[in-house]
Computed example of a mutant assay.
Amino acid sequence: MNIQLNTKRALVTASTGGIGFAIAKGLAEAGAAVIINGRSEGSVSAAIARLVVAVPGANVTGVAADLSTSEGVAIVLGEVSGVDILVNNAGIYGPQDFFETSDEVWDNYWQTNVMSGVRLSRALLPSMVEKGWGRVVFVASESARNIPADMIHYGVSKTAQLALARGLAKRVAGSGVTVNSVLPGPTLSDGVADMMQDEVARTGKSLESVAKDFILEHRPSSIIQRAATVEEVANMIVYVCSQQASATTGAALRVDGGVVDDIV
């Protein structure tokens, strides 16, 4: 399949590393002009430099802003225009017992994981509808359907993303704009790799081997029985952003390695 996005402009939030950077790289390889986003000027500049090396000739710009606030979203919206593809990848996660999770933590997860996408979609979708073409993707999680008992606050925010994406798809029905969610499962992102470094050092095993052991113990329903790579997740998202995916909208597309035990 030859995906060509040469005339498209894409904003990928939280794209200085991990899944977000892999998405930005995949879209750039398909010819899209890509806007990198991160919280600091330093991380954004470093990601742009990496991407230009990885994809020679890529059209890459960046904007630094914390999307957990309306002010941060306003900074992004003040610096970008003509966006055809919006990938809402900004998000936070972390385990915490429900009975010890404060209102402040709940609000931080809601603002970061849900409202960042609400605000950006509200601002950028109308122009896509006017042009008759656009793609909006929410990077959710298998935790949206398989709520983790030790991260209920996170799971709730990810379930909300599925509802948001489905509702927006219906709101822009017939416009040529699609809105979808992609649900990664356990993935060897930068954060996961950092979390496992102590175990890698202790056992002398490779990162991939330690991640596989983790999957088998904590996600035994996994069918691939390993962690996905960030590129594997990005591949699905690049496809969803393509012209070839024009009949896919309002969908929750799993890249979870079969962790969610469901035939749908």
Rank of each mutant, 00 (worst) to 15 (best):
D103W: 08
E104A: 15
V105D: 02
W110P: 01
T112N: 08
N113G: 12
N113S: 06
M115A: 06
M115L: 09
S116H: 08
G117S: 02
G117A: 08
G117M: 04
R119F: 01
L124R: 14
L124Q: 12
L125F: 08
L125M: 10
S127H: 10
S127K: 12
E130G: 08
G132A: 11
G134C: 11
G134P: 12
R135A: 15
V137P: 04
S141T: 09
E142N: 14
E142R: 14
S143K: 02
A144I: 06
P148N: 07
P148C: 08
A149Q: 11
D150S: 12
M151E: 10
M151R: 13
Y154N: 03
S157K: 04
A160W: 01
Q161Y: 00
L164D: 01
A165D: 06
A165P: 03
L168T: 12
A169L: 08
K170V: 13
K170G: 11
V172N: 14
S175Q: 13
S175T: 15
V177I: 11
T178D: 07
T178E: 12
V179H: 05
N180D: 13
N180A: 06
S181K: 01
L183N: 15
P184G: 00
L188V: 01
L188G: 02
S189F: 06
S189V: 07
G191T: 06
V192Y: 09
A193I: 15
M195V: 04
M195P: 00
M196F: 15
Q197S: 05
E199S: 11
V200K: 03
A201P: 00
T203M: 05
T203D: 02
T203L: 01
G204Q: 02
G204C: 03
K205N: 10
K205T: 00
K205E: 07
S206M: 03
L207N: 00
E208P: 00
V210H: 02
K212A: 03
K212G: 00
L216W: 01
L216G: 00
E217Q: 13
P220Y: 01
S221W: 01
S222H: 11
S222Y: 06
S222V: 04
I224L: 05
R226F: 01
A227Q: 13
E232F: 04
E232R: 05
N235R: 10
N235Q: 14
M236C: 10
I237V: 15
V240T: 14
